[in-house]
């Protein structure tokens, strides 16, 4: 059975149709790339999967459970983590507080299993080389550091399924590699990841499968190398087949 299964998902906002019957599935332990031109509905699909937008029709199943109408906070408690395009960290809080607030939101038993939260916080910051900034406000970090903090926080807060929205956007090439390493680490730990990205070489390097979206529809799916060579993708991104 798929970990995540999306069937005939449609979304219309103020007479504007954004998603048209999107169907896809993601297996446990898979790393899936979600690509497509701007305005193709990738982030909107993530917003529906995270529970921030309610679909007009269709359904979302997670571990066999219908979560179409489940609130974002309950989805998070089920293990669905989200990394946002514009750095989903709390800039007015310190780095410590940013991690702590995520750990405190865990169900009581999971929180107990973690042991001393302070140690987990410091371990999380150490993992991404930010321990020395623990008491600083998160707003003072660079884009790459914010991204690392966000991914590490999501990882340590017990999530098993990750929705990463452009994790390398605004990140230096060196830090992009660190982000890639973190995502590979997720795979090693058996986590499942769906990544929205425009960086096709990055997607090719780390994904098992790629889904291509255009104008609110899934138009192509396959292994990265197959998708990369397809005419449809080249037409979508470059307007014509590359010679």
């Amino acid at each position: 059975m798929s970990l995540l299964s999306v069937s005939h998902l449609s979304l219309t906002i103020q007479d504007h149709s954004i998603l048209h019957g999107v169907s896809l599935s993601v297996d446990e332990g898979e790393i899936v790339g979600l690509i497509g031109p701007n305005g193709s509905g990738k982030t909107t699909l993530f917003n529906v999967l995270s529970g921030f937008l309610k679909p007009t029709s269709g359904s979302v199943h997670y571990r066999g459970q219908d979560i179409t109408n489940v609130s974002p906070s309950k989805r998070a408690k089920l293990g669905i983590g989200r990394v946002f395009q514009n750095f989903g960290i709390f800039r007015e809080m310190t780095l410590e507080e940013n991690v702590l607030v995520a750990l405190e939101a865990l169900p009581k038993q999971d929180r107990k299993n973690l042991g001393n939260l302070k140690d987990v916080v410091h371990g999380t910051l150490d993992m991404v080389g930010l321990l020395s900034h623990a008491k600083k406000k998160a707003g003072s970090l660079s884009g790459g550091q914010m991204r690392l903090l966000e991914i590490a926080r999501t990882l340590k807060s017990g999530k098993t399924f990750f929705l990463l929205d452009e994790p390398t956007a605004g990140v230096s090439p060196k830090m992009t590699e660190q982000v890639a390493d973190l995502i590979r680490q997720l795979k090693i730990e058996g986590k499942t990841v769906v990544i929205i990205e425009h960086d096709l070489p990055f997607i090719s390097r780390i994904c098992d499968r790629v889904i291509v979206m255009d104008v609110g529809r899934v138009v192509l799916t396959g292994k990265p190398q197959e998708v990369k060579k397809s005419k449809e993708l080249q037409e979508l991104y470059f307007g014509a087949e590359l010679v």
Partner: peptide, 8 residues
């Protein structure tokens, strides 16, 4: 949204 995605 950020808070909701953490489970708050």
């Amino acid at each position: 949204w950020y808070a909701g995605s953490l489970g708050i």
